[in-house]
């Protein structure tokens, strides 16, 4: 039994459905195309740490030189996370040490975290880069780094005198940027 098919209401319904689906699909694709293709991705190495504007995490422990260090708010502090197996740190540490000597007379402290490292390797690394005398808190199982929200090495934080994190840099730090941020943090203290 063959039935000639003409079901206007059903046909209209499907047609409407198809067009109703077609138009938004085209519009959506068009919008996504235009937005997605024109977007230029920001590749800034500047950090966007969620800690900025909040209290600095705890930083205490044994240092490589054998003493104890506990961070306490009071002066502007630059916190740097490094490791001996990190090659950018090799070029960064001497810069930091030099800046640290410059700051020492101006009440700016430099504290570092040596994360997931062996004491012997780390000490040798410091000797090789001419960075002996650096305050380096040991962090063998990486928990201190995690407390600072660190994802790789090196990273640098600038903390003001009240203990609030003010700036974050991901990667080997640019000394110009660092000097600027330290100055800004100092200004905040005196204001």
């Amino acid at each position: 039994m063959t039935v000639q098919q003409s079901a206007p209401p059903q046909a209209r319904r499907w047609r409407r459905l198809a067009i109703v689906a077609l138009v938004p699909v085209l519009v959506l694709v068009g919008v996504v195309l235009v937005r997605a293709s024109g977007e230029s991705v920001d590749q800034s190495p500047h950090g966007a740490s969620p800690l900025i504007g909040h209290r600095a995490p705890a930083l205490r422990g044994r240092t490589l030189s054998g003493g104890e260090y506990t961070y306490r708010p009071g002066t502007v502090t630059v916190v740097n996370i490094w490791a001996s197996w990190c090659s950018p740190c090799r070029s960064e540490l001497p810069t930091l040490v030099r800046l640290g000597r410059q700051w020492a007379g101006h009440g700016v402290e430099l504290a570092t975290i040596d994360t997931r490292d062996g004491a012997v390797l780390a000490s040798r690394f410091l000797r090789q880069t001419g960075a002996t005398g650096l305050t380096a808190v040991r962090d063998p199982n990486g928990m201190l780094a995690v407390a600072w929200g660190v994802t790789g090495v090196p990273e640098t934080f600038v903390v003001d005198a009240k203990g609030i994190v003010r700036a974050h840099w991901n990667g080997a730090v640019d000394p110009t940027w660092l000097s600027r941020e330290v100055a800004a943090a100092q200004a905040r203290t005196t204001s």
């Binding site: 990486g142 928990m143 780094a145």
Partner: peptide, 10 residues
Amino acid sequence: TPVAEGMRAE
């Protein structure tokens, strides 16, 4: 990864 191990330890 080291970060994940550190996070697990924490």
